[in-house]
Nucleic acid binder design. Sequence first.
DNA 1: GACGACATACCAACTAGTCGGTATGGAAAG
DNA 2: CTTTCCATACCGACTAGTTGGTATGTCGTC
Lengths: 210, 210
Amino acid sequence: MEAKMSAGQQKQSARGKILDAALMVIRAKGYTATTVDDLCAASNVTKGAFFHHFKSKDDLAIAAADYWSEMTDKLFAAAPYHDYSDPLDRVLGYIDFRKTILTGTVPEFTCLVGTMVQETYDSHPAIRDACARSIRGHAAKIETDISAAIKAHGVKAGWTAHSLALHTQAVLQGAFILAKATGGPKIAAESINHLRRYVELLFNRPQKKS
Amino acid sequence: MEAKMSAGQQKQSARGKILDAALMVIRAKGYTATTVDDLCAASNVTKGAFFHHFKSKDDLAIAAADYWSEMTDKLFAAAPYHDYSDPLDRVLGYIDFRKTILTGTVPEFTCLVGTMVQETYDSHPAIRDACARSIRGHAAKIETDISAAIKAHGVKAGWTAHSLALHTQAVLQGAFILAKATGGPKIAAESINHLRRYVELLFNRPQKKS
DNA sequence: GACGACATACCAACTAGTCGGTATGGAAAG
DNA sequence: CTTTCCATACCGACTAGTTGGTATGTCGTC
């Protein structure tokens, strides 16, 4: 407990190491195919340590979903688009930011909870709910800016800030599936371009070339 | 042995029964969590019969992806939107049709290959490719109508028929994930509404209320 | 000396895949 | 016509390996 356990990776607790490993391994192999031993090997932790910190594999999944929310919250809170004064710019900036983080391998840029909910929604309600919380929590933040953008620019209805916020998440999740099917982020980026164009059209914003 | 094995379900071959069961069980539980015994139980077939027709579980997955393509091809070929003379109406009709088939339980209206590719893209290349083939094959059919719509109505570029066709699939796949997270098709339908509105805006088509 | 944080050894249940065997039906031989 | 032969479809007990989970022990710190 000396020092503030430097968010690095060296002096990290077993629990933290398992959680970090879980984000990568589960995104790569899927939840069911990920074994407890996989997680232990990837985090250099023994099985005893695993079950000391998590009472079951399902319990780890829920903790991983919460940890994922925490990590992504930090990532997006630190993103540059919050600085724009026009809320519509913040929405478009969010979409652009999502595109810029499509780098590295597929498991590195895809979404943990989107992956997990597919395998667990019917058989593991607690995990499904944790995933749903994570997605909804993230969508709620974008919804705030969308609502402000609606107020700032007068837009005729037919849709709500809530449904548009969820739609952005649907596009992203779907883009990840296409990326997995094709092996790269290129198709995903093009789908995000379409999403940006849609928002521009909804708000009658002159389009940039993209 | 009388009658001509009425395409119903009674006198169906073991292979066909396994394939039918696979579509439902895998969509409900995911590929990895689906055991060979699950499939045998769901199709009332023995393990011997299973491995007589498929040389491995992975082999079944590939056959199931192909079977899925075959089934969906038939479903969409029989859909009413093909009758419209304006290709843009066919595209919008396709989108509307996708919305009308969001009925029943989640495993009933979600996509087999979208589910499978998430779990297999990194570890089972052959299955991933079968899923990719299925998605691309389906997108190619919509692309035809989109291309025709671009020609019929003069639309300024910035996007291609190909990328828009894939974008429709991304929206649908993402909508399914949201449906799984929330337990119902309502959110998925709203995302499809956004997709329709996007296409209307792209083609400057006066919007219907939706 | 108690308690939290790990390590090691172990287990019962489950899993994909195997293997020897049976049933059926059609074609070739007599 | 009928008998023999063989391929295909199917059966279900069995196995080798894996899985999530546990029981018990050690070690450093308060």
